[in-house]
Design a protein around this nucleic acid. Sequence first.
DNA 1: CGGGGGTGTCAGTCTCTTCTGACAGGGGGT
DNA 2: ACCCCCTGTCAGAAGAGACTGACACCCCCG
Lengths: 127, 127
Amino acid sequence: MDQASPSGDELLRVLTAMASPHRLRIIAALAEGRTYVSQLARQLQMNRPLLYMHLQRLEAAGLVTGVLETARDGSSVKYFELVPFALELTPEAVIAAVRSLGAEQAETDGPAPGAPETGGSRRDTSK
Amino acid sequence: MDQASPSGDELLRVLTAMASPHRLRIIAALAEGRTYVSQLARQLQMNRPLLYMHLQRLEAAGLVTGVLETARDGSSVKYFELVPFALELTPEAVIAAVRSLGAEQAETDGPAPGAPETGGSRRDTSK
DNA sequence: CGGGGGTGTCAGTCTCTTCTGACAGGGGGT
DNA sequence: ACCCCCTGTCAGAAGAGACTGACACCCCCG
């Protein structure tokens, strides 16, 4: 179910999601089986609200899924589970991703007609 | 040249390096051929010092390399080149990486005897 | 000699993320 | 009743990162 070539924004979301030691640890912990929030908080020794935030970020990136299971005894427990993923990080993948990156995109090689000075190397032409 | 299984910190550095739209764009631009800083700054329409910072980050992650080439006419131009990379992002890779992550690491499943309360959910036990 | 292009670096903002403590609840055992 | 374990959310402090303008210097061409 993994997307072979995610959109630029998609890839970016996944990357920012993984770019954190805490979140990597969460993924690793979750890879060994599903757990619920408080339990995981104890395992990783981190604040629950904090863990919550990280989990949401991971979920937004589609790396984990959380379901609120209401046990037969009525107590609610939110179990988180790892979504198996496998994406290959290569220059080609990046190129493809950049193509569909949010908002405007700079040309690879263009004169950029109306574009003003980009560099800051001018001594003081205008001033 | 690609390391099959980078250390935790290594992977983390690469991930944080890629987790930026600007840096992705830089990689994409650099994938089409080497360029020097000012040139690239014009292409991507960004400030040179800013681009510089991003390039350094990418270089620190080992994704690009920069060489200061002194042309025959004496002018110095710093060319940046993309280092071909290919790393697979999977739960297993993350597990392996977390194992060798900097500093302390939380156990996957331990009672943590002397560990105090982690969550902040207590109503007001102490107060 | 005055542009014009290039590199390198710095101090300062400014915005986003991370992190904490506290609060709101829901439900169950003793 | 009290105590325990769980979820969900929030305001605000603290920190890291992104970004800017200006400055230092180099060399060549007219």
